[in-house]
Simulated assay, not measured.
Amino acid sequence: MLTVHHLNLSRSQRVLWALEELELPYQIVRYQREPTMLAPEALKKVHPLGKSPVLEDEGTVLAESGAILEYLQETRDPEQKLKPSDPQARIQYRFWLHYAEGSLMPMLLMKLVFGSLGKPPVPIGIRTVGKLLGKGVQKAYLNKQLATHAAFIESHLAQNPWFAGETLSMADIQMSYPALALLARGEQGEMPHLTAWKKRVEMRPAWQRAIQQGGPLDFPGT
């Protein structure tokens, strides 16, 4: 039996979605974030990094969303439902699998951190300076970078209904967390193509089942 160590309001929602798309049986071990929004120490008993998601499969313990999704596709997807067969689509598939955490998510995390420098748990004595620093970095660098990423994603989805082409793939599942976080921030103006992609995702029964299993998906700092 596959076991998902699932943290609320986290990227582990992607693993639940993948499992539902593949119609695989699994069990969930649930964890709640601390008041600081950090993962609880209990997760370190499962994997040394103490992060979620973690997948257990008959003694094999895997961390990192992308690695887990690729593992599931390679070991539990004999019909290749979630990996395109077209060579050009596979290039896109590989790119978006890595882009999600390698390029887009770091920008969103930096936005979250710098947007929080004027708030607890930052010590009260330096919050004013922290707020000014955070706003400065966002204005000078982060906002421009995120605008570039938003335009890039919009341009791609203007020509493709899914990230790897004509059909849903693990690339969409991997992109779901940062793409939805980008939309939730609402700072990039209208993104009609990404919004249309979001609607296609939310119409999928597997997505709906994953939300029922994992709980509402929300994004800190939005």
Rank of each mutant, 00 (worst) to 15 (best):
H5T: 04
H5E: 05
L7P: 00
L7S: 02
S10D: 01
S12N: 03
Q13C: 07
V15P: 02
W17H: 01
A18E: 01
L19M: 07
L19W: 06
E20Q: 13
E21H: 06
L22H: 03
E23W: 03
L24Y: 07
P25T: 06
Y26E: 02
I28H: 03
I28M: 13
Y31K: 02
Q32H: 13
R33K: 15
P35R: 03
T36D: 15
M37E: 13
L38A: 13
A39F: 09
P40C: 10
K45D: 14
V46C: 08
P48D: 10
P48R: 11
V54K: 02
E56K: 09
D57Q: 06
T60Y: 09
V61W: 11
S65G: 10
G66Y: 09
I68H: 07
L69W: 07
E70S: 10
E70F: 07
L72R: 01
T75Q: 15
R76E: 01
Q80K: 13
Q80Y: 07
A89F: 02
I91T: 12
Q92T: 05
W96I: 00
A100E: 05
E101L: 06
G102R: 02
S103I: 08
L104V: 11
L104D: 06
M105A: 11
M107K: 09
M107T: 02
M110R: 12
K111V: 04
L112K: 09
L112D: 04
V113W: 09
V113R: 13
S116Q: 14
K119N: 12
P121N: 11
V122S: 05
P123E: 10
T128D: 11
V129I: 15
K135R: 15
Q145C: 03
L146E: 12
A147N: 14
A147W: 04
A147Y: 05
T148S: 13
T148N: 13
F152T: 14
E154K: 09
E154W: 10
L157C: 08
A158I: 04
Q159W: 05
Q159M: 11
N160L: 07
W162H: 04
F163L: 15
F163Y: 14
A164F: 06
A164V: 01
G165K: 03
G165R: 03
E166T: 12
L168N: 01
M170G: 13
A171I: 00
I173R: 07
M175K: 06
M175A: 03
P178A: 09
L183M: 08
R185V: 00
G186K: 11
G186V: 04
E187N: 05
L194R: 02
L194A: 06
T195A: 14
A196R: 14
V201P: 00
R204E: 08
W207H: 11
Q208Y: 08
R209G: 00
Q212E: 15
D218N: 13
P220K: 00
T222M: 12
